[in-house]
Simulated scan of single mutants.
Amino acid sequence: MHDATLEDLIAELDAGHLIPGDSPLHRAMHRQSQEAIRIATELNGTYHDEAGVRALLSELVGYEVDVTVGLFPPFTSDFGRNIRLGRNVFINSGCRFQDQGGITLGDGALIGHNTVIATLNHAMDPARRADLEPAPVVIGKDVWIGSSSVITPGVTIGDGAVIGAGSVVTKDVPAGMVAVGSPAKVVRAVMTG
């Protein structure tokens, strides 16, 4: 592969294929990252009303986000083009998304201040450390992620779950459960009623 397109890269990422360091795919990822940095700098560099924030977020993700989506800057994304946002999603200030491996936020998801969502790991072998291993993060409908949480690659959080502030989520969390701590552990069911 002499030169990789953004579409080639997204197909490989979504398939969960390793992205070798300094490969055409890695270079395509770097090009898109520079575009994400440009958009984030515009988003975070001055005041924008809600419509302006949504317009820049739409430019970042590559499709028009729903009018019900809310975001309080600052916000950064390493890539931008592998984020899927449902309706009534709210992302609070200071969040960082490493979305190359794919991030899906279901309808009604609330993402607390300073949350980090990561979808890439580096190879463990020091000789291959520049290689990237993508794994998607899926956050279900009506999930609440508490402030300063970290969601690691490959995690799925089920509908209606709550993640306590400051938690590091390294394993899937079932629907309707509360998980807290580092590493996060399920402690009880969400109280409803």
Rank of each mutant, 00 (worst) to 15 (best):
D125P: 04
S147P: 00
D99Q: 06
E133M: 15
I145Q: 06
A109D: 05
V137D: 11
K141R: 15
G106V: 07
D159K: 04
G164Y: 00
D159P: 01
G158W: 03
S149F: 03
G140Q: 08
E133L: 15
G154Y: 04
V155W: 08
L132W: 09
A161W: 01
L110P: 00
T115D: 09
G102D: 11
T152E: 08
A123H: 15
L132A: 12
D159Q: 02
L110T: 06
L120D: 12
G140D: 07
G108Y: 04
I139E: 02
I103N: 07
H113K: 10
S167A: 15
V116I: 15
I139Y: 07
L120H: 12
H113E: 14
G106T: 07
V162L: 13
A130P: 01
A135C: 11
P134W: 12
V116L: 15
S148W: 01
G106K: 06
I103V: 11
G140F: 08
P136I: 06
A109S: 12
I139A: 05
T156R: 14
I111G: 04
S167N: 00
G160D: 02
R129D: 05
T156Q: 05
I139L: 08
N114F: 14
L105P: 05
V155C: 09
I111C: 05
G146M: 06
P153Y: 03
G164N: 00
P134T: 12
A135Y: 07
I151K: 03
G106P: 10
S147R: 07
L120K: 11
D107Q: 06
L120I: 15
E133Q: 15
T119F: 14
Q98V: 14
S147D: 14
I163Y: 03
L105E: 03
V162Y: 00
G108W: 03
W144R: 06
G140E: 09
A161C: 02
D142A: 02
I117D: 05
P136N: 06
R129G: 06
D107V: 09
G146Y: 08
V137L: 13
R128E: 14
G108D: 05
I139D: 06
I145Y: 02
T119I: 12
D125Q: 10
S148Q: 13
S148R: 13
V138Q: 11
A161E: 01
S148C: 12
I103L: 08
S149E: 03
G158T: 09
A165E: 01
A130M: 13
S148H: 14
I103D: 08
